[in-house]
Amino acid sequence: HPLLNRWALWFFKNDRSWAWEDNLHLVTKSDTVEDFWAMYSHIQLASKLSSSCDYALFKDGIEPMREDSRNKRGGRWLVSLAKQQCHSELDRLWLETLLRLIGESFKEHSRKVRGAAINIRAKGDKTAIWTRAAENQEGVLHTGRVYKERLGLSTKMVTGSQAHADTATKSNSLAKNKFVM
C-alpha cells in the first residue's frame, strides 16, 4: 500500500563531543504502509530511549532542523508531556502522531506538514508537529486542532505553536506561542 509521501526516520543522540548535525542520523525511509510497520517494529520504543535523544519522521528531502531552508518560515505545534505521564502514554502519542503523518490525516493541510519529532528530556518529554508556515493562521490552527483531536489530548491540555525563527533565538521554553489551543 503506497504512501502519498516517502517518509524518513531520523534519530538524534546528544553527544557533546560532536557538532549537533553529527549527532543526527538518518535511520531509514518508508514509502509503503508495510515498510513503515517493518521500520516501527525494528526500532526502540520512544519510552526506551535515554534522555536527550530524539526521533523525527519527516518528508523525504527535508531535514528535521530549523536550518533547512524549507523550515525557515515554519513552526511547530508543541505538546509538552508531564513527567508523571506513563511510558505507554508517551509511546501511544508518538505512534498516533506517526499514523496521522503517513495517513495524511490533515486533509488539505497535509501538504503544509513537514514532519514530527519527539524529544526525550529529563525535564519532560515533548512531541511536535512541524508545519511549513508559522504565520498562516488558518493552516496552523487547523493542523493544531486535528492534531489535538486525533491524539485524544484533553481539551484542557494546552498546546502552543511557535515559529522556528523565535525558538532559534530563545530557549524553547521561553519562545512565544503564536497560537494557543
Partner: peptide, 18 residues
C-alpha cells in the same frame, strides 16, 4: 495526483496482517 489517505483503523489492520 491521487490523494492517498489512510485512516488509523486501516493502518492498524495492516500492522496485524501477516
Amino acid at each position: 495526483g491521487t490523494r492517498i489517505i489512510y485512516d488509523r483503523k486501516f493502518l492498524m489492520e495492516c500492522r496485524n496482517s501477516p
